[in-house]
């Protein structure tokens, strides 16, 4: 009888261990997004961070209530753009690694996980994401985002060379915005 009880106890333990192993496997195996998503490289404001095909550095960051811009080479096209939130302007520098490449994705990742794409209201004038980067040659420009004022604190800059960076590098640069900076009245994209 005691032999039978011992065998039952052993079987119960085996089942429990198997269940624990299955649970551990289930929890540790990445989901589909994790397996096919971008490979994140983290950096901070003021430091170069290397992706597979390019490197980038966020130099300065500021916020503004309005932005002045113009169409390239058309001085009479000056216009001022306001927003119900704030404009977040990141001055950044980037260079390609081995071959010409453009920044195909520029986003702001907020503390609560939301993503805001680079604004398309201003065109690509002076914006880094419109430039073709060349190997070893630093290109400087701005990246402008429009987002709610309460989303600025803790924001990170996300850069990738492709809009869908499947299994490829994605830079996430901490902009060191522990608190949202006081916004300027306006930022001049024409005479920056």
């Amino acid at each position: 009888m005691s032999t039978l009880a011992a065998a039952r106890r052993r079987s119960a333990w085996r089942v429990l261990v198997s269940l624990a192993l299955l649970l551990a496997m289930r929890e540790s195996i990445p989901n589909y997004d994790g397996m096919t998503g971008p490979i994140v490289e983290r950096g901070v404001l003021g430091e170069w961070t290397q992706a597979r095909r390019f490197a980038a550095r966020a130099d300065t960051v500021l916020t503004a209530r309005a932005i002045r811009t113009e169409k390239t080479g058309v001085p009479e096209s000056l216009s001022q753009h306001d927003t119900s939130g704030v404009w977040l302007v990141v001055d950044a520098t980037a260079k390609a690694v081995d071959e010409p490449v453009s920044i195909g994705k520029a986003q702001i990742l907020t503390r609560d996980g939301r993503r805001y794409a680079r604004t398309e209201r201003l065109g690509s004038t002076r914006q880094l994401s419109g430039a073709e980067l060349q190997p070893g040659i630093e290109s400087r420009g701005v990246l402008v985002f429009e987002l709610p004022a309460d989303q600025v604190a803790g924001a990170q800059l996300v850069l990738a060379d492709s809009p869908i960076a499947i299994l490829d590098s994605e830079l996430q640069l901490d902009l060191r915005l522990a608190a949202a900076p006081a916004p300027r009245e306006f930022y001049d994209l024409v005479r920056r």
Binding site: V97, D98, E99, P100, E132, Q134, P135, I137
Partner: peptide
């Protein structure tokens, strides 16, 4: 020689 390549006209 390192395999880097440049397009014309940039900058």
């Amino acid at each position: 020689g390192r395999g880097r390549r440049w397009n014309p006209g940039a900058g």
